[in-house]
Each structure stands twice: as structure tokens, then as C-alpha cells.
């Protein structure tokens, strides 16, 4: 165990090529999927939280269900759709980083939208009542509502990001965890642990935990700033 930890630190310090490749694939997948999820999820969440239309409650229930969708189920659906027997087989996307990003977007978007929706739902009445009471136009009132959500957008993004970076079941199924191609930190940890090669797994674990720590520090800074 001691030797494995030493070797793990050595791998990080020396900038091991395979380790760097895994980090690169992870960064591409996580950043792309979380940004796309943010771009879709924030407007969707604000729309669901701020507007009134028939079927809104049903959509909220569906979104909340999707928030808790098991990643392996998402992976299975994508696997079926894009495998040799699926309707999208011609795209040849299975076992690529692109399909991993798409699957992650499907997993994360409901989380971003859901957190935004519940936040907006909590403040929309007060914002509307105050703005209307002052005689402020609907457009200005909407911008005021958006201004209220700024810090929530950051929090939602970080939540989506941390979910994406820590995800393993779905990306393993659709990406195949192919070395030098689709292997991300979580799948690599699994793979190397199964092989009995703990050092790279520990190195990746250290990095993953460091990122989680960084995200939590960022979140608490944002929360502190929001309350200032």
C-alpha cells in the first residue's frame, strides 16, 4: 500500500503520459457535458420555475424523475440506440468521447434544470409581487429574476460538473473505457484496480478527490459571496 502510494505520487509528479491522457479525456468530457447541460438546463429550469402553463407540473415531475435516473440505465439506453442493432448505428458514435458527452448531458441537464427550477419557484412569487407592486415592466421584472439567480447558476453548474466528473457506470458502457481513447478517471480507477495495479488508481483517486475538494471550496466561496 505504501509503495503504491509512493508510486502514485511519482506518477503525478512525473506527468505520466497515460495519466495525462486520462486527465485530458476526462477534462474534455466533463467540461463539454457540463457546459452544454448548463446552456440547456438553466433556461429550462428558469422557464419551468417562472412560468405558468398547462402540463408544467407534469414536466417538473418528469424532470425530477430524470434527476434520479441511474447512470447505468442511461448508459444502457444509449448503448442500445447506438450499438450495431440500434437505430443510430450508422453514426458510429459508440465508444467515442462524443457519445460519452451526449450521455452525460442527458444525465446532468435535469440536475441543472431541477436545481434552477426549485430556486426560481421559491423566489418568483416575491419577485413578481414586488415588481408588479412597483409598476415595473414584465421584461425588467424578468431581468430582475435572472439577476436573483446568478449565484444559483454557478452552484448548479458546479453540481453538474461534479456529477459528470464522478460518473462511472454510464461512461463505461457507452465509452467502453478504452485506454488512450475513452478512458476517464473513474473508469481508469476501476480498470487498474481490476488489474491489481493500484498506483495509477490511487494517483487518479488523489486527483479526483482534489478536484472534489476544489469544487466544494468554490461552492462555499460562492455561497459566502451570495450572502454578502
Amino acid at each position: 500500500m505504501h509503495t503504491a502510494l509512493e508510486k502514485a505520487i511519482e506518477l503525478i509528479a512525473s506527468g505520466d503520459a497515460e495519466l495525462l491522457n486520462i486527465l485530458n479525456v476526462t477534462a474534455i468530457m466533463t467540461l463539454s457535458s457540463s457546459v452544454i447541460a448548463l446552456l440547456i438546463g438553466v433556461p429550462l429550469g428558469v422557464f419551468l420555475g417562472a412560468s405558468q402553463f398547462p402540463g408544467r407540473k407534469a414536466l417538473i415531475v418528469i424532470n425530477r424523475t430524470l434527476m434520479g435516473m441511474p447512470p447505468v440505465v442511461c448508459g444502457l439506453i444509449f448503448y442500445i440506440l447506438f450499438s450495431g442493432v440500434g437505430p443510430f448505428r450508422a453514426t458510429h458514435l459508440l465508444f467515442t468521447v462524443r457519445i460519452m458527452i451526449i450521455a452525460q448531458v442527458v444525465l446532468i441537464t435535469p440536475i441543472v434544470a431541477g436545481t434552477m427550477e426549485s430556486y426560481v419557484e421559491g423566489i418568483r412569487f416575491s419577485v413578481r409581487e414586488t415588481a408588479k407592486g412597483l409598476g415595473i415592466s414584465r421584461i425588467k421584472s424578468f431581468f430582475l429574476l435572472c439577476n436573483e439567480c446568478v449565484y444559483q447558476v454557478f452552484s448548479s453548474y458546479l453540481l453538474g460538473f461534479s456529477r459528470s466528473i464522478a460518473e462511472v457506470g454510464c461512461v463505461a458502457m457507452v465509452g467502453g473505457a478504452i485506454s488512450w481513447k475513452t478512458n476517464v478517471m473513474t473508469t481508469a480507477i476501476m480498470e487498474y484496480t481490476n488489474k491489481g495495479s493500484f498506483s495509477i488508481g490511487i494517483a487518479l483517486g488523489i486527483i479526483l478527490l482534489s478536484i472534489a475538494l476544489l469544487i466544494n471550496i468554490l461552492l462555499s466561496i460562492i455561497q459566502r459571496r451570495a450572502s454578502r
Binding site: 419577485v127 409581487e129 414586488t130 407592486g133 436573483e148 446568478v150 449565484y151 451570495a226
Partner: peptide
């Protein structure tokens, strides 16, 4: 043209 102050005053960020 009416102005209204709700029971629970709201402060914008």
C-alpha cells in the same frame, strides 16, 4: 396607477 407594498418586503440582490 397603483403602488403596492407587500406584507413581506423583498430585497433584490
Amino acid at each position: 396607477n397603483a403602488g403596492y407594498m407587500p406584507q413581506r418586503s423583498f430585497a433584490f440582490r
